[in-house]
Computed example of a mutant assay.
Amino acid sequence: MKKHSNLFILLLILAVFGGIGLGAQERIVIGGRSSMMLADSVYLFPDAEKKIVAYARGDQGLGNFITAIDPNFKNSVWFDRNAGAEVYASFKPDLVILKSSMMSQLKAPLDALGIRQLYLTLETPEQYYEDIGVLGKVLGDERRGAEVVSWFASHEAKIVARTSKLGATQKPRVLVARISTSGEASWQVPPDSWIQTIMVERAGGQAVWKDANPGSGWATVTLEQIAAWNPDYVFIIDYRENSSKGAEAFRKDGRFASLKAVKSNAVFGFPQDFYSWDQPDTRWILGFTWLATRIHPELFADISVAQTTRDFFSFMYGLDESAFRTLILPKIQGDLGEQF
């Protein structure tokens, strides 16, 4: 989707809404694939949570974050993420929020039923800034939207201001791989345009898989290819189990014994709580911060991932230290590198 497509979508929504105020959405439905990421973004706006009446099921295997922080969320109606327009209509929504990838499937039938929609991309940092601003307009809380965007942008800028000064020889070779366990364990890499690639490059690394995956999804790579890349750092993603186990399996695999990353003990499991921090969820900023501190610890000795994580959950979701320790801390796993 083009860079400013969401601005067009917002204008389209304004035209469809007519005289109805932007803050008048009292019945919101979150649907389609990646509903958990949409919910995490909507919950950045405190008043919105009271208006969600239905939610497409979404759980990658480590739990559902929103049910943990909002006891009333379980009273919402849950429905299949592949549901058709008639299911959405049954909830009598004022607004349906979907990922932009669902537009080709649902826009026409929802339009035909007179149901208002908001499509969000939420795939890169820039799209997050744009989409959160759009959400603020649609939900009638532009100030909160601007505050959230500012928080994200300032934390990203603090890191990029340092890594942007690095020369090519100062940027280590980095592999980010997802473990796939359908039968024998295999390893997959993301496309160039995905946030995992963007985070590695902005954190001051060279994404060794760049140009190796021209597709639109995760691509399996061979052991020979990984050996040829010979990365300095390896970061392992697992959406369903503790990523530290996947990192340990990678380190102990004799076929990788000659890799620089294995020899220098630089193979790490990507941090997780309810969701992994590598993906285009609101947690991307935590994953980005952690990556930067792992790849360039000397540049970011003044940045604490633990404190940034506490600040994130406090500012974004209103969790104080007690709530953080009760709800979030027990879920945090992966190779953080510092005590929480």
Rank of each mutant, 00 (worst) to 15 (best):
K2Q: 15
K3G: 09
H4I: 12
L7T: 14
L10S: 05
L10Y: 09
L10A: 05
L11A: 10
L12S: 12
L12M: 15
F17W: 15
F17H: 14
G21Q: 10
L22I: 05
I28S: 07
I30Q: 07
G31W: 04
L38V: 08
A39C: 13
D47K: 14
D47F: 09
G61V: 11
L62I: 12
G63T: 09
N64P: 09
I66E: 06
N72Q: 11
N75I: 00
N75R: 15
N75A: 12
S76D: 15
W78K: 14
W78M: 13
D80I: 09
A85H: 13
E86K: 12
F91A: 08
F91P: 05
I97C: 10
S100P: 11
S100C: 02
S101L: 11
M102H: 13
S104K: 15
Q105A: 15
A112Q: 14
Q117S: 05
L118W: 00
Y119W: 08
Y119Q: 04
L122Y: 01
T124K: 07
G133V: 10
V134R: 00
L135D: 01
L139W: 04
E142Q: 09
R143S: 04
S150P: 06
S154A: 12
A157C: 11
A157S: 14
L166R: 08
A168R: 11
K171E: 07
P172Q: 02
R178Y: 00
R178M: 02
S180F: 07
S182R: 11
G183M: 05
S186M: 09
P191Q: 07
D192P: 03
W194N: 01
W194S: 00
I195Q: 01
Q196L: 10
R202S: 07
R202M: 11
A203T: 04
A203L: 02
A203V: 01
G205H: 02
V208R: 03
K210L: 11
P214R: 04
G215S: 12
S216K: 14
V221N: 00
T222F: 11
T222P: 09
T222D: 12
L223E: 10
E224I: 11
Q225W: 06
I226D: 00
I226P: 02
N230K: 04
N230P: 03
D232Q: 05
R251M: 09
K252D: 10
A261Q: 06
A261L: 10
A261D: 05
N265E: 11
V267H: 03
F268N: 04
F268D: 02
F270M: 14
F270V: 15
F270R: 10
P271E: 00
Q272D: 03
Q272M: 01
F274H: 10
S276F: 00
Q279F: 14
P280G: 08
D281G: 07
T282F: 03
L286I: 06
G287A: 00
L291H: 06
T293I: 07
R294W: 08
I295P: 03
H296L: 03
F300A: 01
A301P: 04
D302W: 10
D302L: 11
D311E: 15
F312R: 03
F313L: 08
S314I: 05
Y317K: 08
E321P: 05
P330C: 10
K331I: 05
I332A: 01
I332P: 01
G334L: 06
L336P: 02
G337K: 10
Q339F: 13
F340V: 03
